[in-house]
């Protein structure tokens, strides 16, 4: 669409719009439910953010609750948890971004180089299965692998002589971020790599053949052909990932970070909202903190998109 620059093409498109729409009306009807769904479930409930500026009383409803301006935002900024929660949210998100984002790309690149079809299929299946398990199960795995009494990892380290006595992984603050990031990579790496594998599959094989004829090694071909070809897709996903930067996660942190000892590194915005807002019926406070998070996410999304557009990518 951005290619439409001169007046005549614009005119042509304007006139053709209705015609084109009527030609593909079945397609438009298929889009319509999605649009309505998004409108009902994503746009309509948005009036609820007004609660953040009220002392919301659940019995009176929004119409009768008193307006209090930015009181709840101030409360959050001045709360003793604020700095800790923000630090954890940013660190955990960045960890997930720096490790969780490139991991599936690397997996896809390597899988693409595997010649044996059965091995490639097997790896793909095995690596994407955890995606379909809920965090309750994954955290159960993690807890039993990392347990002090008879935990597999502790047994392994002890048997190989690397440690003298078992480490209490789940109750030690310094291990929490590593455990969280690894569990996330393990759960999502396979499923996220599917889209990159699809992108790689769409590259014209002739390019590879030509490069091979010119004497490019397999590594060279990966760097000069595969990576540049999937770059647009990578950029799109990167922009989306930046938009989710403050969504450090919820279930994974709540379940893996259940030990009270790790709370100082495990409390993020979402778990904070759940604990201090929803569970204690401070609904306005919860909304204010949630809105704050969304506002920053939108800014980040626009920023990332602007940057991505400079390099030819971008969502819009």
């Amino acid at each position: 669409m951005r290619t439409a620059t001169n007046k005549s093409t614009i005119y042509k498109r304007e006139r053709g719009k209705l015609y084109e729409l009527s030609r593909q009306w079945e397609l438009q009807v298929m889009v319509l439910p999605a649009v309505i769904l998004i409108f009902i479930f994503s746009y309509l409930p948005m009036y609820g953010v007004l609660m953040a500026f009220q002392d919301y009383n659940i019995f009176e409803g929004m119409a009768n609750s008193p307006w209090v301006g930015l009181k709840h935002f101030e409360m959050f900024f001045q709360s003793p948890e604020f700095s800790n929660v923000m630090r954890n949210t940013i660190v955990i998100s960045l960890l997930k971004l720096c490790i969780g984002f490139p991991a599936p790309i690397i997996l896809a690149l390597f899988l693409n180089e595997v010649n044996r079809m059965w091995f490639k299929r097997l790896t793909q299946t095995v690596s994407y299965l955890p995606h379909f398990m809920s965090w309750v199960i994954i955290s159960g795995f993690a807890a039993s692998i990392l347990a002090v009494d008879n935990g597999s990892l502790n047994l392994l380290l002890e048997k190989t002589g690397l440690i003298d006595e078992p480490i209490n992984f789940l109750s030690t603050s310094k291990y929490f971020w590593v455990i969280l990031a690894s569990a996330n990579v393990w759960k999502e790496i396979g499923f996220s790599s599917i889209v990159y594998l699809a992108a790689i599959a769409s590259i014209d094989p002739q390019i590879y053949e030509a490069a091979a004829v010119d004497g490019a090694s397999r590594f060279k071909r990966m760097f000069i052909i595969t990576i540049p070809s999937i770059m647009p897709i990578v950029m799109v996903f990167f922009v989306l990932a930046i938009g989710n930067l403050l969504s450090a996660g919820f279930e994974d942190i709540l379940l893996l970070g259940s030990s009270p000892v790790v709370q100082d590194v495990a409390q993020v915005i979402d778990t904070y909202v759940y604990k201090y807002g929803i569970q204690s019926s401070r609904l306005s406070y919860a909304t204010a903190v949630g809105l704050f998070k969304s506002a920053i996410s939108v800014v980040l999304l626009f920023g990332a998109n602007k940057m991505a557009r400079k390099y030819g990518g971008g969502l819009w």
Binding site: P260, V261, Q263, D264, Y276, S280, S281, R282
Partner: peptide, 21 residues
Amino acid sequence: SDSNEGLIAQRVNDIYTETFG
């Protein structure tokens, strides 16, 4: 729990659980 003292109680409890751990 939605009063000012309730908020303090929650914080004191959180600090306590962490300290105890």
